[in-house]
Amino acid sequence: MFTFITGGVRSGKSSWAERYVLKQRKKGSRFVYIATSQPTDEEMKHRIFLHQKRREQSDVDWLTIEQPTDIGKLSKTLTSNDLVLLDCLTTLLTNELFKKNEDWVEDPLYRRFVFEKIWNELMLFTKCAQFVLVSNEVCWEGALRSKLVYHYIRLLGHLHQRIVERADLAIRMEFGVPIAMKGELE
């Protein structure tokens, strides 16, 4: 089962995703949390801390893996019993793109490579009992004047399109209210 969740910042995506994963619990389930964020300042560290604390306080043990790039490396360690939550696609995309500094803005081949790499690596996780992918809504900006922003939004938009096509359940989160755009919420 492949579930995709997107929405604005602070729309309750992450906490909903966590609750959703917990509900899928079966005998032998393992809860895996893949964090892609790299803290760059204190506020970010604090946010990550709050996410960690929330998972610590839940009644199950989460296996937390920090993997800012190359998520495909994890697929060998995952099994079909795993319930996997990856938070989030936007930071993963940023991390992959900026491996090459800002050169990617002028490098269509590299952008294409990153797009296919992320897609292929994400698909490795669909073997798990549940794969929940969290992303962020960033397509509503009119100001696409900056080349960097334009290409970033373009890549993310195309990834979202492909993901929604493949997903069993696609959720648009509006201020804490999940809307099933594809599939059914039980």
């Binding site: 397509c139 509503w140 900006e141 696409l144 939004i153 373009r154 993310l156 938009g157 195309h158 979202h160 399109q161």
Partner: peptide, 9 residues
Amino acid sequence: GGAFNGKRK
């Protein structure tokens, strides 16, 4: 729709 949401397609 938003940019790069697949409107043309």
